[in-house]
Design a protein around this nucleic acid. Structure first.
Lengths: 224, 224
DNA sequence: TATTTTGTAAATGTTGACAAAATACAAAAT
DNA sequence: ATTTTGTATTTTGTCAACATTTACAAAATA
């Protein structure tokens, strides 16, 4: 028996599709996007595409110059700006999660940790590991139970992933990061907000340090 | 000599207009908004209105339930959630402003402070004082020179104003707040990031305390 | 009378057409 | 050679018409 499934409205689909396309770096940073070409690519009319573009502009993944819309072209300054905000908000998320997580949440958290461990020992590709990393951070902000924080962290995470793909290519930090995740998870599971917050803050600092090392290396390369 | 002025596109005008209307509490919290009625009210078609609605949904001033769109109906929990984020981000803004403000910025800051003082001594209406309060906080986040932070603070500020108007009516804290502003301004002008951050954090805490007092009073009223 | 079913009105979803504006580029003037 | 002007093209801005969904009331049925 066939059943009719109601698909999402086009502007939602367009938003998700274009966002994914951006995060996967299928457009070039700085590239101009036109409503017509996006509409043609998605097989829909310009109306829903315009709505999706407005949302992506709000997210900062697209930028407007005059009447035209371009793919965000991030610079080191943008990374530093984002990390200053992230360093304030994400430890708050960890603190709240340590207070608010429930049993199903703890199970999910443990599941993500063990999946990450096996992915690392199996030497899975970076994409898989990056995805589990995202799952870990998403889960924690979700269990902060703070709607406002969740919304901000979603914005930060999307930009973070995008900037990483653009500026660092497929590089991911392999060493230590799983240990830091485990320590954070332990603090949350043991309902220790102070420890969860501190550990998350250090985790983010270490993450940014890696960026700086990589970025300085690349700067050095350009001088050759 | 006449000069041709190009008016903004309708979706921008609609966004600004509806946002202002919301902040001034001309709609009721929880009220359903329809594209058709908004379009008729603004004298434009539904297309640009839809784009404006998408942006306001992203801002959290409107909420979607199913296919319909409603005016955000904030609860105390929403205030507390917002203030947790604000308490993390705005002190960061003050810290950065203390590092990055320039001479014109210092002049603007002093100007706002003195305008506020005269407005208070003139017993101007709450609207005027609230507006100067907003100017003060906007200026500081602007001189953080952190684009990401500025964007977040804009979202926080809009929601903050809206929630204040909805939940507190036209009440504004009069005592102390100008002194706290002056101390923060001094710290920024003297380029003392640590002091600026600490003072801003206390300022926000005091602000939230006022909310709690008022809110408890109102709760008490309802029990009568 | 209780329960479906059907019909109708109102809302959103989507499109294609046309207008206006910005842009690119070639031709003409300096 | 450089600037200016005019024109063709592209892109965004806007609208009105139509389709679909939804909610709800009215009518039919058991």
């Amino acid at each position: 028996m066939d059943s009719i499934v109601k698909s999402e409205p086009f502007h939602i689909q367009a938003y998700k599709n274009i966002q994914r396309t951006l995060l996967e770096k299928e457009f070039s940073p700085g590239e101009q996007l036109t409503e017509t070409s996006l509409a043609k690519k998605l097989g829909i009319s310009r109306g829903p595409v315009r709505e999706a573009i407005r949302m992506l502009l709000h997210d900062g993944l697209l930028v407007q110059k005059g009447v035209h819309v371009y793919v965000f072209d991030p610079q080191l300054k943008d990374v530093l700006d984002l990390y200053l905000c992230k360093e304030r908000l994400e430890p708050l998320g960890a603190r709240l999660a340590a207070s608010n997580i429930d049993e199903p949440g703890i199970k999910e958290l443990n599941s993500i940790i063990s999946k990450t461990e096996s992915a690392l020992s199996n030497k899975s590709d970076n994409k898989e590991i990056a995805s589990l990393n995202t799952d870990f951070h998403s889960l924690i902000s979700k269990y902060s139970q703070n709607q406002q924080l969740i919304q901000f962290m979603n914005l930060i995470r999307a930009k973070n992933i995008y900037m990483r793909n653009v500026l660092l290519g497929d590089f991911t930090r392999k060493e230590n990061f799983i240990d830091e995740h485990k320590n954070i998870a332990d603090a949350i599971i043991n309902r220790n907000p102070d420890a969860a917050e501190t550990l998350m803050k250090e985790h983010i600092k270490n993450d940014l340090d890696t960026w700086k090392i990589i970025f300085n290396d690349q700067e050095g390369d350009e001088k050759l």
